[in-house]
Simulated assay, not measured.
Amino acid sequence: MNRSEREAAVRRILEQRPPQVPPELYEDAVRRGGRMLRRRTAVRRMMWLVLAAAAVAFTVWALTARPWVEPPSQTTPPVTGW
């Protein structure tokens, strides 16, 4: 199929009348789309909630563990000059 044949086939397809869509198909599509949007919104809110909980947990851990402070030494320094 060369270019002119393809163009002619496309023109024939575009000139045809679109097929009739059953009316209940629209209602099903709207219902499923609404369900998908609600589910997506719920997942997004849950992810934000998990992220906020993780941030709070990290902050509490950092304030109690204080990982930036040097731990106390386990041995005493040698005593000299006695």
Rank of each mutant, 00 (worst) to 15 (best):
A62D: 07
R32T: 10
A53M: 03
T64Y: 01
G33Q: 04
R32V: 13
M47H: 01
A29F: 14
R31F: 04
A54R: 04
M46Q: 12
G33Y: 00
W48K: 11
Q20N: 03
T64R: 02
L37R: 00
P22M: 08
A57K: 04
T64Q: 02
W61V: 09
A62V: 03
F58M: 11
R32E: 13
M47D: 02
A55F: 03
R39S: 00
A42Y: 05
P22A: 13
R38M: 14
L51P: 10
R38I: 05
E27W: 06
A42K: 07
T59F: 03
P22G: 02
V30G: 11
T41Y: 07
A52H: 02
G33H: 04
M47S: 06
R39A: 05
V21W: 01
E27T: 09
L49I: 01
P19V: 00
E27C: 04
M36V: 09
V21L: 14
M46F: 15
L51V: 12
V30K: 13
V21C: 09
A53P: 02
A65G: 02
V60W: 09
L51W: 11
A53V: 01
M36T: 02
V30P: 05
W48I: 00
R44V: 00
A29C: 12
R31P: 03
V43M: 05
L37F: 00
R44F: 11
G33F: 06
R31T: 14
T41C: 08
R32K: 11
A62T: 12
P19C: 01
L49E: 01
R39L: 09
L63I: 08
V43N: 10
P23C: 03
M36D: 13
P23A: 13
A55D: 07
A53I: 04
A29W: 14
A52N: 01
W48L: 05
F58V: 11
R40I: 06
L49K: 08
Q20P: 00
V43I: 14
V60Q: 07
Y26R: 11
W48G: 03
W48D: 01
M46H: 15
